[in-house]
Design a protein around this nucleic acid. Structure first.
Length: 373
DNA sequence: ACTCATCCTTGATT
DNA sequence: AAATCAAGGATGA
């Protein structure tokens, strides 16, 4: 059947699908290379229903979407995508009018349509448990594996089946540590089971049936520090993973997850060095939060705060820009399940208000390497 | 309170 | 060819 696409027209430079969907922020988008479109399943609307969503970007400023599922209205998908891609946040304006004034390093780089996503929080949480000490291609396989084995089939496209992301109840019911280990999850198998069990408990105690509703409700009531404290009460979630959930799953734009790359950037480019006195004061702040106090690495937390102060209310977004510039190459799943390395797409960025034309390398997506035998 | 080895697996590098 | 290491960390000793 033919897909019926609708359009969302954006300002130029606001979004680059490839850079957003294939840089280790979301792990479940499947790229069809010949059609140049992405597909996945998304939980859309108030219910807990998943739908197959297809995206393509025929031009820099146009986002086209379609769905396999007739029951999902196009206006509903559009609303969902507006929230998912955080299209209320003006990336170009932030870059040119805010970050460049705060940080000279942003003079030499452009956002390349790299945005932070507002993903489903439970899925984000489990995905980033899988991310610990791991690489993107394997994380992608693991997320796919969770859906195939414990989710529900939602549709088929390009002879590929699409499944929902399993709820905590489905994981508790169908999964086991042994089975997850057989599927290649390694030591994270236990974390996923234990986290799913605790999530079922927590949401029932709070009177919720849906993981999404429970986490969103908590998010609306708690401060960042309290929310992070709660997230770190699950096994396998430390400060970095919790911050990823806060930023990419709970829309906390100011949160800067500090991983090895961001840590390296802080020391190399920003001459960060921790002062003993500062760390001591920082430790005081967490005495009310026992789990945070136990799991936190004060030096990494100090780096997070340095970047928050430097970059401001959307510090997490600024981090995303620097991160993709630092790491550069990305991986993505193709329709055949293959993982291929790609280069970051260079988007033509246009400074709003004053149109400064610069000669731009509008590079196409390039394969870095073909797999050798 | 703090440091550090260890944890699963895969793919690239040596 | 076989060994080693790193990959967007977290845990427990």
């Amino acid at each position: 059947m033919a897909l019926k696409y609708s359009q969302i027209v954006l300002p130029k430079g606001e979004l680059c699908l490839s850079n957003v969907l294939q840089t280790g922020q979301a792990f479940r988008w499947v790229l069809n290379e010949s059609e140049n479109r992405y597909a996945t399943t998304m939980k859309i609307g108030d219910g807990n229903n998943y739908f197959v969503v297809v995206l393509r970007q025929p031009e820099d400023h146009i986002l086209e979407f379609a769905s396999l599922n007739e029951t999902c209205g196009m206006d509903m998908i559009k609303d969902h995508l507006m929230k998912y891609f955080r299209l209320d946040i003006p990336l170009q304006e932030l870059h040119y009018s805010d970050w460049r004034k705060r940080d000279a390093r942003f003079e030499n780089i452009t956002p390349h349509g790299m945005r932070m996503l507002g993903q489903e929080p439970w899925e984000t949480l489990i995905s980033f448990i899988c991310s610990s000490n791991n690489n993107i291609s394997r994380i992608t396989k693991m997320c796919s594996s969770l859906c195939v084995h414990y989710g529900n089939k939602v549709g088929t496209m390009d002879s590929l089946d699409f499944y929902s992301f399993p709820t905590s109840d489905e994981l508790v019911k169908k999964a086991s540590e042994t089975h997850l280990r057989e599927l290649g999850f390694g030591y994270r198998a236990k974390f996923i089971i234990e986290t799913a069990k605790k999530m079922v408990q927590d949401k029932v105690n709070a009177g919720f049936e849906s993981d999404t509703a429970f986490l969103e409700d908590l998010n609306s009531k708690l401060t960042y520090e309290q929310m992070r404290e709660h997230l770190m009460s699950y096994q396998g979630i430390g400060p970095k993973v919790a911050d990823c959930v806060c930023l990419m799953g709970l829309r906390m734009d100011q949160v800067v997850p500090v991983d090895v790359h961001v840590g390296r950037i802080a020391k190399r480019d920003y001459k960060f060095q921790s002062k003993k006195e500062y760390l001591k004061n920082l430790a005081e702040k967490y005495k009310e939060l026992p789990i945070t106090r136990k799991k936190i690495n004060l030096e990494l937390d100090a780096i997070r705060l340095m970047f928050l102060e430097l970059w401001g209310p959307c510090a997490g977004w600024a981090q995303g820009i620097l991160f993709t510039n630092e790491v550069g190459k990305t991986n993505g799943a193709t329709s055949t399940g293959e993982i291929k390395k790609r280069k970051l797409i260079k988007l033509e960025d246009t400074e709003p208000k004053q149109a400064s034309v610069r000669e731009n390398s509008k590079t196409k997506m390039v394969e870095v390497k073909a797999t050798s035998s």
